[in-house]
């Protein structure tokens, strides 16, 4: 039986083994390389995607769990107005250095603002705590989310 997934509004038949973690299916089979692999241990947030509107780390759970759910990757974030606002705010605040954590952070920020259009600073920090940034862009990322929330 073939597995099928809905990603960024499109339905895909999946050939990968059902035990394959979602991130490998996205990157290797579907060539959606925006979702990053950072640890494979659900510890760093680089692989974050949205599943039915919630942030999910995609590097451990097998792809079969995501059947019949709506997956949004960084490539589909701009499909919503909130997603676009977050992306524009990250550019305006230059909220990245190397950029490896950025996909996951943009996804997390879009999910946060979809849930709570005006999060306070503590709520934003809590939502981002599963995500690592090693270049130290944290203050800029927080400013970008504040900007996206108020524009």
């Amino acid at each position: 039986m073939t597995l099928s997934l809905t990603i960024n509004g499109t339905r895909y038949d999946i050939a990968s083994d059902p035990d394959t973690p979602l991130v490998f299916v996205l990157r290797d089979e579907l060539k959606l390389k925006g979702t990053k692999l950072g640890c494979g241990l659900e510890q760093c947030g680089a692989c974050a995607v949205m599943v039915d509107g919630k942030v999910v780390l995609s590097c451990v759970s097998p792809v079969e769990v995501f059947e019949s759910q709506e997956i949004t990757t960084i490539e589909g974030i701009a499909d919503t107005e909130i997603g676009q606002r977050v992306q524009q705010a990250f550019v305006a605040e230059t909220a990245a250095q190397c950029g490896y954590c950025t996909s996951g952070l943009v996804v997390a920020a879009a999910a946060l603002l979809s849930d709570d259009p005006a999060p306070d600073s503590d709520a934003t920090k809590e939502a981002l705590t599963p995500h690592l940034c090693r270049c130290g862009s944290h203050p800029r990322v927080l400013r970008a989310i504040e900007r996206a929330a108020t524009t």
């Binding site: 390389k33 979702t35 990053k36 230059t94 990245a96 490896y100 996909s103």
Partner: peptide
């Protein structure tokens, strides 16, 4: 703008890890 920032926020920036 910082070079690459637009690509980074849209997931289109190519890291070595993304080469295919």
């Amino acid at each position: 703008d910082m070079r690459g920032i637009t690509e980074m926020v849209t997931g289109r920036f190519t890291f070595l890890h993304d080469l295919d």
